[in-house]
Design a protein around this nucleic acid. Structure first.
Lengths: 131, 131
DNA sequence: TCAATAATAGTAATGATTACTAATATTGAT
DNA sequence: ATCAATATTAGTAATCATTACTATTATTGA
């Protein structure tokens, strides 16, 4: 099942690469529609799924009911602001060693983990401060 | 907004306390219905939400599209089998120190994290083995 | 026993996502 | 360039988990 190119898929990928804020499918749709007014929402979903299966983008299941997408496929961790719900990349040293901690005493096999950090983002932390 | 008792809520809580497998709302519903045949699905959802807000149970958002529930509110980590999708409690030493790793160099405030481990559960790892 | 009101059953509505289908676009070969 | 094969699309309908709505019922403290 080889795949053909499509203007739609390339536009979606290109748009996602300009963003650092991990948009949802709906945000991708409304923004990409400015360039291609009758692209359909189904096309956006299908291509986001395909691109993430191909490993060209990353799907983030934050547990907030809507998936987010990230064109940065390099391994990195994410932070979600409890207040404004912003999703932010974290630059931090690897915590992959927690897999070994989990594996100790576990009969099955640990193959990986998903971690999200929560708290107040820089902007929200600033605003809540007594200055 | 004080709350009154209800047979339904107590039944839901009691059922959940007998389980170690982190059932979904639907599973709770179908099982609890054996004891109380005309309980409604909405009642199950409402009470699972209320109980987790009260801190009596824990809601697990595994990112698989359906929330799971756990009557064990003590801090512990979870493992999801990539094959059979079973959700299993992990007995492991604390990894809460990863919050400090994330906080280093981050301008906002890290208040906590959510982590899920993935891989092959004991049963599935066994079956896939060349014996 | 009673009045106040929280909780329920049953059903409708919502929101994210997927499935379906006839029409269109892309591709490699003629 | 043309063509046939087929992947992809637009548009819409369907699905699935969850929440909202409302008239009725259950719980509670007086």
């Amino acid at each position: 099942m080889t795949h053909k190119r499509s203007r739609q898929r390339e536009l979606i990928k290109a748009f996602l690469m300009t963003r650092r804020d991990h948009p949802t499918a709906d945000v991708v749709y409304s923004r990409v529609r400015q360039e291609m007014p009758n692209i359909s929402l189904g096309t956006v979903y299908r291509n986001l799924t395909l691109l993430s299966e191909l490993g060209e983008i990353q799907r983030l299941r934050l547990g907030d009911g809507t998936d987010h997408f990230d064109a940065d496929t390099s391994p990195h961790n994410h932070f979600i602001c409890n207040h404004c719900k912003a999703v932010i990349d974290l630059e931090m040293e690897s915590i992959d060693s927690i897999d070994k901690v989990a594996a100790a005493g576990f009969q099955g096999e640990i193959e990986g983990h998903v971690t999200y950090f929560y708290g107040s983002c820089p902007a929200c932390a600033e605003h809540s401060q007594i200055s």
